[in-house]
Amino acid sequence: MFAVFAAALRRELRLAARHKGDWLLPPLFYLIVVTLFALGGKPNDPQLSAFAPAVLWVGVLLSALLNLDRLFRADFDDGTLEQCFLGAQGAMPVVYAKLIGHWLLGGLPLSLIAAPLALQLDVPATVLPTLLAGLLLGTPMLSLIGGFAAALTVGLPRAAVLLPVLVLPLIGPVVIFGAGAARAAAAGLSAAGPLYLLASLLVAGLCLLPLAATVALRNSFD
C-alpha cells in the first residue's frame, strides 16, 4: 500500500517538474493580492499590521484555490483514475498522494512566501514563527477540504466556479484559529491554544477527508 502511495507521489512531483507554471503562478498571484491590499489602504498606514494576519491568510486560501480544479481533472478525463480504483489497493493511496502532492506544491511554498510578505505588511519579526507554524498546520487542511470538493465536482463542466463556494465556508475554523494564533502572538499572549486546535483539526481531517474524497470520486464514475 505504501509502495502505491510513494509511486503516485513521485508521479505527481515529476508531472509538476514538467509543468512549472502550475505551482509557480499561485505564489505570484499571492504576491499581487497582498500588494493590492496594501495599495487599497493609506500609504504606510500603521493599521495595516493589525489586519496583516487576515490578509495573509485569505491570500493563501485564494491562491491555493487556483489550481484546485485540475487536481483530479486530467486523470479523470484520460481514465487513469478509474484504473486506480480497479487496482488491488483501491484508490485510497493515490488520493492521499494527490492531496499531499497538492500541499507540497501549493500550501508549502505559499506558507514560506508568507514570511517576507508579512515583513512587508509590518508584522513584527517575533510573530513570524507563530504565523508560519499556523500556516504550515492550516494549509494542509485547505488541500484536504479542497481535494474533497474537487473530487465532488470532478466530472462537472463548471467546477471552477463552484469550488470556492464549496470550500470557503468549510475552511472558516482554520482561518479563525490560524489568524487568531498570529494575533495572539502579536498581542504578546501565548499562541499555543489555537495552534493545538489547528493541529487537532488537521489530524481529524487527515483521517476522514481522503476517505470522503475517495467515495466522492467513485460517485462520479457511476
Partner: peptide
C-alpha cells in the same frame, strides 16, 4: 449522482 454528491457534502 447529484443527490449523492450533495449528500456527501452535507455529511462533511
Amino acid at each position: 449522482a447529484g443527490a449523492r454528491a450533495c449528500g456527501l457534502l452535507a455529511l462533511v
